[in-house]
Structure formats: structure tokens, C-alpha cells
């Protein structure tokens, strides 16, 4: 309740100080950047990305060479100790991030591309097509988190392409739902009808009338799904179905060394903290974006 009920019945507010409008998602990015959590998340994310990309060039050893006794304590020679086979933990941590980033981002992109396409079509077509698409996606939704990937891994073995595809596929239903909901809302507005009335083709309506109006929620969803992709990829490695030995990978390192959790927690701490920092930083960015998204509406309401 506000002065706005008067507004809804008649003139809506004119924004006072808004610069000429940029693309919606750019606007969301700019507003998200104004929040501290977005900056913190971004900085941590970039630092971890740098470690994943360039850490290998400063690593003291190669990731697979045996440099000392298994489970050696941290020392000058190996700062973080050695793992269950006597390999240098620091070296493996520096090498083990790239796979998490590459697989996580690929899975998110796959899920987003397919999810958004299906959601757009379902939201615009409505009726039978909509029903069919959403029912099929409900089936995918019924397999919780990593279970769908495990089903296929049990049959085809732990292949990386399969992991990426399955993590992407399990994101599809939720991305499609978000896209569909946003699309339905936009399609209900008259400007879509106005475009159809002058004969703009369906494909162009989806791409030029609908998509630009839902880009912000999709951006937020992408951020969120990136977090979950990383979580799922790490989890699959942790239970032994992601990266395979002797590869260096944060999730796999936790799996390999977990027998030492009581005697030698050092070995686990480094990869656990890396994964934790990575998922928290990704989620901080996603949360910043979603706050900025809500903020857009609030702003115009108060202007």
C-alpha cells in the first residue's frame, strides 16, 4: 500500500534520474556490481580462476611424481604435505582447479542453452506443445541432483563428456521453468500482441520482443546454475565418477585422501577450502545479481 495504487489506476511513475536505458542484463550487471557481495564474490572467483589457470606454472613439482613418504607432514619441501601416494599436495591443488572450472562452466552453458530454448518455446506456444515439453522436463526433474548422472555412468562408465552432459541436462528443467514463467508473463503483455498483429514472424517475436525482456532473470539463473554445476561436478569427482586417477582434481583429491581425515586432515583441508571458496564466490555473485534484479522493480516503483 502506498501512493502507488493511485499510480496503477492511472499514470505510472516516470523515473527521475535513470540514464537512457541500456540492455536489461547490462543494467542488472551494473546494479549488481554496486553491491559488496558481488564484488567480494567476483574477486574470490577471479583469484581461484587465476590459480586454476596459471597455478600449474608455479607448482614446485609435477602432479603425478612421488616426492616423499605418503602422508608426510607439511614442511619446507612440501608446504601442504604429501598425499596417500606421496605426491605433493600443493602441486596437485594448483593443478586440480582447471577441470572444475571447465567442466562446471560447460555443463552450465549446455543446460542454459537447451533450457532457455525449451522454456521460450513452451511459454510462447502454450497448450499442447507447452504441456508436452513441461511433462518431459518433469521426468528429468524427478532424478535428484547427481543421481541421473550416476545412472548413465553406471552404464557408460565415468566419461567426462557424459558427466558434463548429464549435469547440464539435470539443470534443464529448472532453467526451462524460469524461462517459461518469464516468457508467459511477457507474452501476456500487449506489445507481443501488437507485434503479432502487424505480422512479425514467431521466431522474431521470441528473439526480439520476448528475449530482451527476460534476459535479467536468465542471467541470475545462469549464475545460480553455475554454482550448482560446480557443486555437482565436485560431488561426482568426490564419489569417484568424475575425473579419474591419476588426474589432479579437487574433488578427486578429497576422495583419494579421505581415509586420512582423522590422522592427517591437512591433506583434505586444502582442496575442501578451495571447493568451498569457489562455490561460495559463485553464489555470492549469483545472489548479487538476483538482488539487483529485484532492485530494478523496486527502484521504478519508488522513483
Amino acid at each position: 500500500m502506498s501512493l502507488e495504487p493511485e499510480v496503477t489506476s492511472a499514470e505510472a511513475p516516470i523515473s527521475v534520474s535513470r540514464a537512457p536505458r541500456r540492455r536489461e542484463w547490462v543494467q542488472t550487471l551494473v546494479e549488481a556490481w554496486a553491491l559488496r557481495r558481488t564484488k567480494v564474490g567476483f574477486v574470490i572467483f577471479v583469484i581461484l580462476l587465476m590459480i586454476a589457470l596459471f597455478g600449474r606454472f608455479v607448482a614446485p613439482y609435477t602432479p603425478t611424481e612421488f616426492v616423499g613418504r605418503p602422508f608426510s607432514d607439511p614442511s619446507a619441501a612440501y608446504w601442504l604435505g604429501t598425499d596417500f601416494l606421496g605426491r605433493d599436495v600443493l602441486t596437485r591443488v594448483l593443478h586440480g582447479g582447471l577441470s572444475v572450472f571447465v567442466l562446471g562452466i560447460s555443463a552450465t552453458v549446455i543446460g542454459t542453452v537447451f533450457g532457455v530454448s525449451l522454456g521460450l518455446v513452451a511459454g510462447y506456444a502454450r497448450r499442447a506443445v507447452d504441456e508436452a515439453i513441461m511433462r518431459v522436463l518433469d521426468v528429468v526433474l524427478a532424478f535428484p541432483s547427481v543421481v541421473l548422472a550416476m545412472l548413465f555412468v553406471s552404464i557408460l562408465g565415468p566419461r567426462l563428456w557424459l558427466i558434463v552432459l548429464m549435469v547440464g541436462v539435470s539443470h534443464m528443467p529448472r532453467i526451462a521453468r524460469v524461462t517459461r514463467a518469464a516468457t508467459v508473463e511477457v507474452v501476456a503483455r500487449d506489445f507481443v500482441r501488437a507485434a503479432a498483429a502487424v505480422g512479425v514472424p514467431r521466431r522474431k517475436i521470441l528473439l526480439y520482443e520476448v528475449l530482451p525482456n527476460i534476459s535479467s532473470p536468465l542471467l541470475v539463473e545462469f549464475g545460480l546454475r553455475l554454482t550448482y554445476s560446480i557443486i555437482m561436478i565436485a560431488a561426482l569427482s568426490f564419489i569417484g565418477f568424475g575425473m579419474q586417477p591419476p588426474a589432479a582434481d579437487w574433488g578427486l583429491m578429497i576422495n583419494e585422501n579421505r581415509i586420512a581425515i582423522i590422522t592427517q586432515p591437512w591433506v583434505l583441508l586444502a582442496p575442501v577450502l578451495m571447493i568451498g571458496a569457489l562455490t561460495i564466490s559463485a553464489n555470492l555473485m549469483a545472489d548479487g545479481l538476483s538482488r539487483a534484479l529485484v532492485g530494478i522493480d523496486r527502484d521504478t516503483a519508488q522513483a
Binding site: 505510472a12 536505458r21 540492455r23 536489461e24 503483455r189 500487449d190 506489445f191 500482441r193 501488437a194 507485434a195 498483429a197 502487424v198 505480422g199 520482443e209 530482451p212 525482456n213
Partner: peptide
């Protein structure tokens, strides 16, 4: 036909909904 679509034009109730904000 395109000619028919051109000849009959429709103005919607709410100008807040009928103009693409982007």
C-alpha cells in the same frame, strides 16, 4: 494478408503494456 493487417490497426488499453520497454 499483409494489406488486411495494415488496414486494420489496434490500439491497446494500457500504454504501459503495449510498448516494448526495451
Amino acid at each position: 494478408t499483409s494489406a488486411e493487417r495494415q488496414a486494420i490497426q489496434y490500439i491497446f488499453q494500457s500504454p504501459y503494456s503495449s510498448l516494448n520497454p526495451r
